[in-house]
């Protein structure tokens, strides 16, 4: 184990986010198939509720973080040229961060507090 336990931290993030996403997905799919929101007002109302809004924001954030760890693992396995790997990782990190900010802004704009 490294001194700062960075590998352990991302390993744990990977597992905890996986558990959260599994539970969220199963609840969301069951709920949406029992009460399908077929028109825009009903659909927007689902995500305007502060609780659904927050749980969904957390889901998107953890999905992006989970994917970041997964992509990093793939790069570590297949991209052996260190500078290339660094640049690729930087690009993916930037993209995930931008997607996270964008999703936050969009979901925040529909929440009915």
């Amino acid at each position: 184990m490294s001194l700062r336990a960075q590998g352990l931290r991302t390993w744990l993030l990977q597992r905890l986010s996986a558990v959260y996403m599994a539970i969220y997905s199963l609840v969301a799919i069951s709920w949406l198939s029992i009460n399908p929101p077929l028109d825009f007002p009903t659909w927007q109302a689902v995500f305007a509720h502060p609780l659904t809004n927050m749980f969904t924001q957390l889901f998107i954030f953890l999905l992006l973080a989970h994917a970041w760890v997964g992509v990093r693992d793939i790069f570590v396995d297949y991209v052996h040229h260190a500078p290339t790997r660094f640049i690729l990782l930087l690009l993916v990190s930037t993209m995930q961060l931008m997607l996270a900010i964008w999703s936050f802004m969009a979901l925040y704009s529909v929440v009915q507090l």
Binding site: F40, L63, A67, S103
Partner: peptide, 28 residues
């Protein structure tokens, strides 16, 4: 690994669809 990579590549597009659908009637 492949399924994870596939989900990673489709995420931006799916987020775009999801966000568009929440914004307005026309986005929906």
């Amino acid at each position: 690994r492949l399924s994870g990579a596939f989900i990673f590549f489709t995420t931006p597009f799916l987020l775009y669809l999801f966000i568009a659908s929440l914004k307005s009637n026309s986005g929906f």
